[in-house]
Design a protein around this nucleic acid. Structure first.
Lengths: 231, 231
DNA sequence: CGGGATCCGTAAAGATACTG
DNA sequence: CAGTATCTTTACGGATCCCG
């Protein structure tokens, strides 16, 4: 690889050797979002083959951008080094550039319910929710059966759980909409409140949960770079 | 290509489809430095094959980052669109990240006299030079004959000329050094004045030209992002 | 000389399957 | 959970050639 490199002393070229290989930028974005376990990363980058993911992680480790922690008995975790964390403003500005310049309609041709739900699961903020188990069911009527129903299960003190098969719990809030609307709202292309007001997103169930939805539902960690403050 | 894409709605993934293909970042860096003609770009990115350069330019045109001007009789020029020019801070911050984190010694293994001289030619500032033809000869004693001698010919009102064969003009200033020192100075890794003071760069000839060297010799357009102001 | 197109061999990536 | 193994497809690099 170092042989087939750009062979330029220009720093951009040297950075490109690290950042340009296919999937690398997306992978770094996923790691900046906090994924550390192999299969956790896989779910965030579902179309990347495990072989390639493994290879990229090793390359980034050699480049000093990623470090593997836990070589002992337990399963390894992958963390960004300081060198890797300092890529955050770059990745964010790339995202902001794309948000500004890439046609939204084109972007919205690449919807993926599982990916969206997995990202929502990660960014959901349980703090404003009731201090009991809370179940939110998403319904995308236009999707095929396997992707139509999703459940987010929030239990105090635990990680949020995502299911695509009915967990047979009482549901506190139903969210009925189409995938495009939900994705746009979550990406910050449109306002969740506005879509609810327009009837494009239908909330049924607990009115308290319903009213506080903008507090707990989160948004793309990149969206904060585009639309406004949300640390 | 749009078929083999990342298929992620994440804006970083969409930008990566444009920015990640091999050579694209380096090419954009070269265009941000001002190259507009096909072979002019080639000289800045000498290891990129013309076929691939042509392909990349077309892809970037489709992406709306580059526009081709002059489809008429004369030769086409390639310019960045506004969308492309807004990549400048991103490319610059990538360069700054590399400058900070990538080992200088590793970087300095990829020296290329022709590329360095071509970049120096471009960034040389004739304004502080005398209002007559001025010839500067570079001598890299350690290099093989073909790369040992370089001439920059500055004529008022004309583009700077670069020769690797003796143009048989009177030489106003000789610069004798090794390629590594010259590259590091030009990249901003070290100070030109310091290398001259240390004797690592030897200046022979016109003392006026010699004293004003930091005014006209320029530096990497990326170096300004690292070391200090030089618009 | 500028601006490519073509052909071909190699290297990387994708799709699936399988394992400790 | 955390990866390999294998096979096919695509992309890339290098050389050559073409045309105005």
């Amino acid at each position: 690889m170092s042989n087939s490199s750009y062979s330029q002393f220009c720093p951009v070229a040297m950075a490109a050797e690290i950042l340009s290989p296919r999937w690398t930028l997306v992978l770094l974005g996923e790691m900046l979002s906090g994924s550390t376990r192999f299969n956790e990363i896989r779910r965030g980058v579902p179309r990347m083959s495990p072989a390639l993911l493994s290879k990229r992680l090793k390359e980034l480790e050699v480049a000093g951008v990623v470090e593997r922690i836990g070589s002992n008995a337990d399963f390894p975790e992958y963390h960004l080094t300081e060198r890797g964390r300092e890529l955050r403003p770059i990745i964010m500005s790339i995202g902001a550039w794309a948000q500004k310049w890439i046609d939204t309609d084109v972007a919205m041709e690449k919807l993926d319910a599982q990916l969206l739900m997995w990202n929502m699961r990660r960014n959901l903020n349980p703090d404003p929710m009731p201090r009991r188990r809370t179940v939110v069911q998403f319904i995308y009527p236009e999707l095929p059966p396997r992707e139509k129903h999703w459940w987010l299960i929030v239990e105090p003190g635990q990680d949020v759980d995502l299911c695509s098969i009915d967990p047979a719990h009482d549901v506190d809030l139903y969210i009925t909409t189409n995938l495009k609307t939900m994705t746009k709202a979550w990406m910050g292309h449109t306002s969740l409140s506005k879509e609810v007001a327009d009837g494009a997103i239908l909330l049924t169930g607990d009115p308290v949960l319903s009213r506080s939805i903008t507090q707990w539902i989160g948004s793309s960690s990149l969206a904060c770079a585009y639309v406004g403050p949300r640390a």
